[in-house]
Structures are given as structure tokens and as C-alpha cells.
Design a protein around this nucleic acid. Sequence first.
DNA 1: TCATGACATGACCAGGTGGTCATATACACG
DNA 2: CGTGTATATGACCACCTGGTCATGTCATGA
Lengths: 226, 226
Amino acid sequence: MKKKSLSANATFNNLPLEKQEAIIHETVREFAANGYQKASLNTIVKNLGIAKGSLYQYFRNKEAIFYFVFEEFTHRVKQTVKDGTGQERSADFFDRVKQVMLAAITFVDRYPDYFQIYLKVLFEHDVPRREELLGRVRLFSREYFGPLCEEAREKGVIRRDIPVATLIFLLDAFFDRFLQGYVQPYLDGGLGMAKMSRKELTVKIDEMIEVLRGGFVGEEAEKVKK
Amino acid sequence: MKKKSLSANATFNNLPLEKQEAIIHETVREFAANGYQKASLNTIVKNLGIAKGSLYQYFRNKEAIFYFVFEEFTHRVKQTVKDGTGQERSADFFDRVKQVMLAAITFVDRYPDYFQIYLKVLFEHDVPRREELLGRVRLFSREYFGPLCEEAREKGVIRRDIPVATLIFLLDAFFDRFLQGYVQPYLDGGLGMAKMSRKELTVKIDEMIEVLRGGFVGEEAEKVKK
DNA sequence: TCATGACATGACCAGGTGGTCATATACACG
DNA sequence: CGTGTATATGACCACCTGGTCATGTCATGA
């Protein structure tokens, strides 16, 4: 399948793949490091050793460059999630939550800069077409967790006395912060997740999901009480 | 008690209180709207109707202005939390969590701009003295939730089969996202918390804390099973 | 050999930034 | 009144930004 993008000019698509990739790589790096507004096209062309005019023959303007990069991001996200959760589709609610988390970890390990860009967009208010871009990644909370919770609720796997929207919110909050903590050490509450091996990480995830399942009180403590 | 700040020059402290407050107000607004780097001193002085030179007689530079604002923020945070949780110090773990949440809501209602600044700092990497500033607000996860969890764990109120650090992480994740969702509607997962009355909000909080307590499975569902 | 068109270049532009400073003003005190 | 001091001012500076464009290079094909 050939690559084609509406946000890049034909000139860019005609470039040798090597050069395309170099440009993408440097551009992603710059946006990840500085967000949209502060990212400097001058820096990009300097690091690439090309003229600024060239960049403007590949893309209409800064916005188009960013848009192009974000398209790459969403594409990679969807691919990774599909790969990670597609096979051995476990029926258990909590197992599936775990699978999504592992897929997400895989993603941020593989494409840390892309994830940084996403985080930047989340908290930078004047990114062009921001709402549209973020909407595309909403798949986690609404498209994925939503049906998952609904189904589990109907089957009686999760409690029915709490509105499903509240459960989704909590799941999403937990999921999001988990990823953020993994990437931004100052958000992990001293857990040191950034430096964990995949194995240690899995243990932590299991712990957390166990708390999601049984709550802060836990079944053990509950039993003792009665 | 007189106000005194090391980050503001004497000239600023000598100013009539009215003027001081006007300057603080506009400065907070600008930083909240644009974060540190993109906040424009030109905009601030234009909106205030003062000369740029004046601003530089009140503060050494942009960094000092920001530092001053952040000091105001931490001061207000501590005050609000103290006011909200000080009286009727309930002994119950979950009640106390609830109290902190309500105090936090009170804070972001009263000082939305200050909270925006905090969020901006969280995700803007090149804020001067960023680590130091963020460290001061860490009181939630470490100084407050930490001892709270330890104590509850010893009393047997919360489960002992999960490391306390993990519990704190989850509590912090939930707490943080709850506040962010309250302030940034696109993060609330369609719950519409931004527009809730204090009463409705309390109901939601109760729901969430109930999930924290009993987990996604819940005690009802659990009972039925057995 | 020459013409065409795709691609590369960097000087240049207008507009914005944080920061400076010589000068003007206002007010208190003798 | 005159003098000294604290405050106010805005033109100005160097630097950086995204964006433009006239000019140059070069491979292709006739």
C-alpha cells in the first residue's frame, strides 16, 4: 500500500523514502519536545540540514506539518491496539482491561515521542483543529471502554447499582493516569514505573486491576469482618 | 499580617493594594490562558494600561512574575484544604477522602485560573524551576493521602494484600482526573460534571467513592454470587 | 544540445518576544 | 520655594518566529 497524505504536498510524497522518514522523525521530535506553538520550524530545518523553503514545498504551513504528524500518530495507535487486543480475545472483563493496558504500554514504549505529542495537545489550548484531533483518539473511553462496560454490566460481571458512565469515567481516569505516570515520572506517585521491566509492570497492573475489581476494602478484609 | 514576597520588588509591595490586586489578577489571567512561555508581558501591560517599564520595576523579570503568582497559588491551596478538612475531622477513611475532594472542588470553583496555571505547569516542560514548584503541590499524594492510607491500612479498614503505594497511586489518579474532568469538559468522559450543582456533584462523588470502596464488582453482586 | 519542470535555496519580511534605560513626573520635606 | 527621591513611561534593542519568493540546480527526454 502506497503512502498518501492530504496534508503533505505531492512533492513530499515523491521524495525518497529515506528523506521522508528523516523529515518525519525530526518533526515528531521537535513537536514532542515543544508542543505545537513552541515548536520551531527553523530548528527543524537546521537539524535536517535543509532549507526552510524546502519544508514549505513539502507542506503548506506549520499547521499542515502538525496535522500530518498527528495522522501518523492515530494510525500507529489504532494499529498497536488492534495488534495487542485482537488475538486471544478473552471474554473476561478484567482480562480485557489488562490487555488494553498492555497494548498501550507497548505503544508508548515504541513511540514515546508520538505519545508526548498527544499529551501536549491535551493541555495546549490553541492547537489548530484540536477538538477534531483529540476526538479521534477518544476511542479509549467511549468506543472501547464503553461497550466493554455495558456488556459486563449486562452479564452481571460488574455492579449494577452504579451508573455505567461513572464506571467508565473511573476506568478512563485510571487508564490515563497510568500511562501518564509511566511516561512522566513525577506523576507516578513514587511508584517508579518508568524503570520497571515488562514483568514487574505486569505485576503492578495485576495489583491495580485487583483493586479495581474488589475495591480498597477487598474481599479478604470483607470476609474477616463478617 | 503584612504581605511580603521575595519574588516581588519593594516597589510592588509599596503600591496601593488596589493596584497590586489588579496586577495580580491580570497576570494570573494571562498565565492561566497561555501557560508560562506563551504568556505575553506586552498583553499584560496593555490590558492593565500601564507601561512595560513599570512591570519591570515591580518584578525582576518574567520568571519572577510567574514565581510570585505560583506562590499565591500554593498559599491559596493550603488555606482552602485546611479550611475544608480542618473542622469535623471525621475518622472514617472514605469520609476523609470525600472531604478532600470537596475542598478541592471548592478551590477550583473559587480560583479557576490558578488551577489552570497548575495544569499548564504540569504539562509544560520548560517552565523555570518547574520541579520545585510542582514538588510543593505534591502534598496531596504524599503528604495527605500517604498517611491517610497507612493509617487506614493499619486499622484494617482497607485491604492489606496490596502495597500501599499502589493504593495511593490509584487514589491520586482518581483524584487528579476528577478535578481535571471538572475543569476541562473534554476529560470528563461525557459525565458533564462542569455544569453540575454542588448537590449533584456530591452524589457523583459518593458514587465514585462507593466504587473505590467496593470495586467494580461491588458487594451486592458479590453476595448474590455466593 | 537544449528545453522543461521538479526540487532546493536562503535572503528577506512583518510582527512578535523579553528586557533596557534615559527621561519625565509627582510628591514629601526643609 | 527648591531639592531629592520614588515611581512611571514608552521608544528602543536584539532576537526569534512563521512565511515568501526570486533565483538556482539538475535530471530527464526529445
